[in-house]
Amino acid sequence: MEFNFVLPKDFKSQSVAHLLEQTWLVPRKQRHFLRMKKHFLVNDKAVSDDEILVSTDRIKIIFDEEDFPLLAVKFGDEKLADILYEDEHLVIANKPEGMKTHGNTKDELALQNHVAARLNQPVYVVHRLDEATSGAVLFAKNQFVLPILGRMFENNEIHRKYVALVHGHFQQKKLTINQPIGRDRHDKRKQIVSKTGKAAVTHLSVLTDFRQHSLVSLSLDTGRTHQIRVHLQAIEHPILGDLLYGKKEHEPRLMLHALQIVLQHPFSEQKLEILAPSQSFDARCKQEEDNEN
């Protein structure tokens, strides 16, 4: 693998060692290979770890197969991969409801396998959506960018906007749900609001009030398992079609959709704002609109 970069105009000057270890999170083993093989070049010249990098420097990095062994991913059906964005380092796909982000076994096919088939290369899971939730999912195309994207998620530098159709109406148009979430000891499938759980913060805005339901927009400061579903249940506004946390009702799908993902590209620093459409989500909301008339 060979990667070429031009350091952006607002790049903060730093040493090669700092860039690789602290900024780009390259593991120690791979940093050693780059140093020994002279596979880190600045303006076409091999440099030491002490070299100071500045804006507009041209960087070339070469990784051999032994440096980053490829992940073994079984290829799925490329026709099932709806690609919203792709570049040299990352890909964003639109996951339909009812499809897992990744399989639980090496032979189980999921979105990861279908995207790999479409790109003809393995992709790496950065985050996941519940099987019943649709929307934008981010994958890394190489192990070089994978830890960087992972840290960006941990630092809340990758933002996801969700929409949900929920039961009832809200007194406030905007609210923040700040309730810790932990595992339900009585049902291993579920999470619950718990004083001993991990911090979880969800921001909610009401978009539309229907006759009995509300269309809401949601964003997260944290990424706990089932966070939106648990928080909405806790404030007595469960999501329509949520058979695990909501009412046992007939709905075509869980009405939760990851509408948008926003991030600053870790290398180019370009702001990416990627929208994911969902015909099934929109069709169910259209039913609510029609019921108003």
Rank of each mutant, 00 (worst) to 15 (best):
E2G: 05
E2M: 10
N4T: 15
F5Q: 08
V6E: 13
V6F: 00
V6C: 05
L7D: 14
D10M: 01
F11W: 03
F11S: 11
F11Q: 08
S13V: 00
Q14S: 11
Q14P: 06
S15R: 11
V16P: 01
V16W: 04
A17N: 07
A17I: 04
A17S: 13
A17Q: 07
H18K: 13
H18I: 11
H18C: 00
L19Q: 03
L19T: 02
L19S: 01
L20V: 00
L20S: 05
Q22W: 09
Q22F: 08
T23L: 06
W24Q: 06
W24N: 04
L25W: 07
L25R: 13
L25Y: 11
V26Q: 00
V26C: 01
R28E: 15
R28Y: 12
K29F: 14
R31G: 06
L34D: 01
L34I: 02
L34S: 00
L34G: 00
M36V: 15
M36E: 15
K38R: 11
K38G: 10
K38I: 04
H39W: 13
F40Q: 03
F40I: 02
V42L: 10
N43T: 05
N43E: 08
K45T: 06
A46S: 14
V47D: 12
V47Y: 09
S48N: 06
S48Y: 04
S48C: 03
